[in-house]
Simulated assay, not measured.
Amino acid sequence: MRRIDYIVVHCTATQPNASPEAILRYWRQVLGWKSPGYHYLIKKGGEIVPLLPESEVSNGVKGYNSHSVHLSYIGGIDGKGFPKDTRTAGQKESILCLLHSLKTRYKNAKIQGHRDFPGVTKACPSFDVRAWLKEVAPDLL
């Protein structure tokens, strides 16, 4: 099993109704990625879609992928393409459930948003992960 230092929360920077298939197609055809950007994708209704085994490396945060597990909710932008927290109640519940499950397996891993890594200039995941966790699940920090 590979060492996991980070559990990273992302948004897809798409409209909330984007399909997992369209996102996967974009990664393959436009970006040329062989592996998905995340291990888990969370649909608008809260359904968790596994994309890649945790034992494999995804394309989540350049320079940190070999020691990270990545999850993303579908959404994260408003109608004009600007960053916006578009998480539904179902997505919030699924993110928390998944984070608890991952933290059980990777006890020493730090949970943070994509934007919290050095040199990252994106707004992803369009909310402050650590501040949110302090409110709803301080046991995960």
Rank of each mutant, 00 (worst) to 15 (best):
G79N: 10
K80W: 10
G81S: 12
G81R: 14
G81W: 14
K84E: 15
K84S: 11
D85R: 02
D85I: 02
T86I: 08
T86N: 05
T86G: 03
T86L: 02
R87G: 00
R87D: 01
T88G: 07
G90F: 00
Q91P: 10
Q91D: 06
K92H: 10
S94Q: 11
I95Q: 09
L96T: 05
L96S: 03
C97A: 13
C97M: 14
C97T: 14
C97W: 13
L98Q: 11
L98G: 02
L98E: 02
L99H: 00
H100R: 15
S101A: 10
S101F: 08
L102A: 05
K103D: 04
K103S: 10
K103N: 04
R105M: 09
R105K: 15
Y106W: 10
Y106E: 09
Y106G: 08
Y106A: 07
K107N: 06
N108E: 11
N108F: 05
K110H: 11
K110E: 15
I111Q: 12
Q112L: 15
Q112G: 06
G113S: 02
G113Y: 09
G113R: 01
G113Q: 03
H114C: 15
H114Q: 15
R115Y: 09
R115G: 02
D116H: 06
F117C: 08
F117D: 01
P118Y: 02
G119N: 10
V120K: 08
V120N: 09
T121E: 12
K122G: 11
K122A: 14
A123E: 15
A123T: 10
A123S: 15
C124N: 15
C124G: 04
P125G: 07
P125H: 03
S126G: 14
F127T: 00
F127C: 00
F127A: 00
D128K: 13
D128C: 04
V129I: 09
V129Y: 01
V129Q: 00
V129F: 04
R130L: 15
A131F: 07
